[in-house]
C-alpha cells in the first residue's frame, strides 16, 4: 500500500471524519467525562488504546470470524481489551480510574469501537486498521479535549487544574460542569464544526448511516421506520 494512503487512514479520523464531531459516535462519554480537561485526556487515551488494539486483532481475525456471529465476536474482542486497559489504569493511575468511574468499562459499548470494527477493520489489513484506530482515537481525544477545556474554563476558571481566570475577575458559571452544560457545549461545538466545514454537515441528523449496528439491522430487515435512527 502506498505511503500516502496510509497517512490518509491516520489523518482522516482527526478532522475529515472526526468520530465525535462529524460521525456523531460515542456521545455518552463525550458528554459525561468532559467536566475537566484532564478527565477528557484520560478517557481519550484509554479509548485510543482499545480502538487501536481491537482494530488490529479484528483485522487479523477478519477471515476467521463467520459473518453471522461477527457482532458478538467483535464485542468479545473489544471487551477483552477494555478489561486490560481497565486493570492497567486501576493499577497505575487510580485517580483517573476514580474520575472516569463507570465510563471506563462502558468503552465496550461505545459505538466508535464497534463502528470502526464493522466499517473498517473487517475489510482492511492490519496496518491500515491500526492507523485507522489510532487516527480515530486521536480525533476522539481532540474533540473531548476541546469540550473539556471549554467546560472546565467556564465552569471553574481553571484548565488542567491551573487557574486561568481568577475569581476576582470571573465568577465561575457552574452550569458548564453540570449535565446541562455538557449538552449545550456539545451542541455549540457541532455548530462550529458545521460552520468550519462550510455547511457540509448541515441538516445531517442522527441517522442510520452512522450507526454501528446499521448493516446488522438492515440485513435482518429490521430497519423500519422506528429503528431508522438509532
Amino acid at each position: 500500500m502506498a505511503k500516502t494512503s496510509l497517512t490518509h487512514e491516520f489523518t482522516k479520523g482527526i478532522l475529515k471524519e472526526n468520530p465525535v464531531l462529524c460521525l456523531l459516535l460515542g456521545t455518552c462519554p463525550t458528554l459525561a467525562v468532559t467536566t475537566s480537561a484532564s478527565n477528557a485526556v484520560g478517557m481519550g487515551v484509554a479509548a485510543t488504546l482499545v480502538l487501536a488494539s481491537s482494530n488490529a486483532v479484528i483485522s487479523l481475525l477478519r477471515k476467521a470470524i463467520p459473518d453471522s456471529v461477527r457482532i458478538p465476536a467483535y464485542i468479545t474482542v473489544i471487551a477483552g481489551f477494555v478489561t486490560i486497559v481497565q486493570l492497567l489504569i486501576k493499577a497505575y493511575l487510580p485517580a483517573v480510574d476514580e474520575s472516569l468511574g463507570i465510563f471506563l468499562p462502558l468503552i465496550v459499548v461505545n459505538c466508535i469501537m464497534l463502528g470502526r470494527a464493522e466499517m473498517f477493520a473487517n475489510k482492511n489489513s492490519i496496518l491500515p486498521s491500526i492507523l485507522d484506530g489510532l487516527g480515530m482515537g486521536v480525533g476522539f481525544t481532540a474533540a473531548l479535549l476541546c469540550m473539556g477545556i471549554v467546560r472546565e474554563l467556564f465552569g471553574t476558571g481553571n484548565v488542567f487544574g491551573n487557574t486561568l481566570l481568577p475569581e476576582s475577575i470571573f465568577t465561575p458559571i457552574t452550569i458548564f460542569i453540570l449535565p446541562a452544560g455538557g449538552f449545550f457545549v456539545f451542541g455549540m461545538l457541532i455548530a462550529l464544526a458545521n460552520r468550519l466545514q462550510k455547511g457540509r454537515l448541515r441538516g445531517k441528523d442522527f441517522g442510520c448511516e452512522n450507526c454501528a449496528m446499521a448493516s446488522a439491522c438492515q440485513k435482518s430487515g429490521n430497519c423500519k421506520e422506528g429503528a431508522e435512527a438509532v
Binding site: 456523531l24 453540570l178 449535565p179 446541562a180 452544560g181 455538557g182 449538552f183 449545550f184 456539545f186 451542541g187 455549540m188 457541532i190 455548530a191 458545521n194 460552520r195 454537515l201 448541515r202 441538516g203 445531517k204 441528523d205 442522527f206
Partner: peptide, 16 residues
C-alpha cells in the same frame, strides 16, 4: 447554523 444536531442538543440541555 444551528439546524439539525446543534439545536437538538441545546434542547436536551434545557430539558437536563
Amino acid at each position: 447554523f444551528l439546524k439539525g444536531m446543534p439545536i437538538t442538543l441545546i434542547g436536551a440541555a434545557i430539558v437536563a
